[in-house]
Design a protein around this nucleic acid. Structure first.
Lengths: 110, 110
DNA sequence: ATCGTTTATCGTCGATTAACGATTAGATAA
DNA sequence: TTATCTAATCGTTAATCGACGATAAACGAT
């Protein structure tokens, strides 16, 4: 795995292509995009509520949630027998910032 | 081949998660993010210029370009023995719009 | 027609992904 | 205790990805 992050001459956001690509990868599946939207709509919810909405097995949804958690976009807190998921608004904002920078002057880069 | 996302009972906005996820997938690799940035910086360029910049074989770069082309983010026009690549600004703008909508009220969805 | 340049495609390999059912683990309820 | 509910994990399968070298295709120049 290569990290491609040279030191940058001070920029508002020292973002790198790896990070942006990583979040894109987490969003590179329709089910996960829908999960993010669903999460934001309900503000927070448990795994079962997502299973009810998607035509996927519980284990598959759990896997998708894991991937989203690993990307940082989603965080989950255990509450008794269930886990409450919600969007990490900061990471989502970070992603949006990087998306807007894509291909622009003060762009993200290696 | 299974499309994991069945047709859903009608919804208003035809802006779909599949499209957004598809573009994200194209950007889900650091090399492709760098290619997009490089393309936008040079406005346009040929494959060889990208090969010079990335630590990848020519065939690999060609593959990445193909993926970017298929996503619509990049278009290439053949010019003699070489192909001139450039960003499709419209598709890039579309992506940015969808990214900003991610998780918002008038969000993209199925 | 042949050469050189540039890019696309083919074939292969190992690694990863997506999906599922089955199982396990945790916490609460009876 | 046992039972129930929820979620995570395991194990498997088929498919896709990322990378490369080798080859082919397209064109301009000689």
């Amino acid at each position: 795995m290569k990290t491609c992050c040279k030191p940058r001459p001070t920029n508002a956001a020292p973002m790198d292509a790896d990070r942006f690509a990583g979040i894109c990868k987490a969003l590179a599946h329709p089910a996960r995009v829908k999960i993010v939207n669903h999460l934001k709509e309900l503000n927070q919810c448990i795994c079962g509520q997502i299973v009810d909405v998607l035509p996927l097995a519980q284990s598959t949804v759990s896997q998708h949630l894991k991937i989203l958690k690993e990307s940082g976009l989603v965080k989950g807190t255990i509450e008794g027998p269930r886990t409450c998921y919600c969007i990490d608004r900061q990471v989502l904002a970070e992603f949006k910032t990087m998306a807007m920078q894509l291909g622009e002057k003060d762009r993200i880069d290696e």
